[in-house]
Write a protein that binds this DNA or RNA. Structure first.
Lengths: 116, 116
DNA sequence: CGAACCTTATCACGCTCGTGTCAAGGTTCA
DNA sequence: TGAACCTTGACACGAGCGTGATAAGGTTCG
């Protein structure tokens, strides 16, 4: 078989075996399994684990943040809603008319198409 | 003065006064202050609070998630890094060459330009 | 002035995150 | 066969989240 066991993967990536299971449960890196249920980490998974580690350390980000970003990536409705909310905030209040927010729904669906 | 005090804002938005201070500390809705330091919520803030409440409830999202999305919106470097990581995952492993991830840096800066 | 508000700071509480460790049991392989 | 791995599940624990309550003190306004 071509792949590392969880402990070997832990050793070469700097995560602990415990954390590899945790990362998997968070839905971020899910290795294949042998028929017996053993995790086998291939080159792709190992690389993802290393870059994930960099990402978290370099930007001081939480696993749940990355998981949420993944959700944003797939749930277009959520993505549009969040972005619309944020954009409305970014605008300076002075320039915002009292009914500008009424465009929420239009903006949302417009952005849903343009952003993908 | 044209604006509601924190308790009035709480009453009309469904948040508690306590939570309005908390939301502010999370950097999501920051009302102006009177010279004496009293928070004054204008129409814009009230609407943001209502839509934020909808957002959290409807999508079962945490305040910290929205805060992270805001960070993604402004920190382009973080945004590019996260998106690159996610994209690499989205690709089916079978089609991924062992050195595809080496394009990380190029992808990152390319996306940095294209995504804004 | 005094009631009714506002401010920040603090204690509390249950829940989740990130992490380790340990237990009970299955798998691999020399 | 037996040592060395793997699995899931659990207890633990400090830190932070979401939320309320309460205290000590300043502000507003009839």
């Amino acid at each position: 078989m071509d792949g590392l066991t969880i402990q070997e993967a832990a050793d070469t990536t700097g995560w602990s075996a415990r954390m590899l299971r945790y990362v998997e449960r968070a839905g971020l890196v899910s290795p294949e399994r042998t028929p017996a249920g053993y995790r086998i980490y291939g080159a792709a998974e190992l690389q993802r684990l290393r870059t994930l580690k960099e990402l978290l350390a370099h930007f001081d980000v939480a696993l749940s943040d990355v998981a949420f970003a993944a959700r944003l990536e797939t749930d277009m409705d959520l993505r549009a809603a969040v972005q619309t909310w944020l954009r409305a905030q970014a605008v300076r209040p002075e320039h915002v008319g009292p009914d500008d927010w009424l465009r929420f729904e239009q903006l949302k669906h417009q952005r849903l198409l343009e952003v993908v």
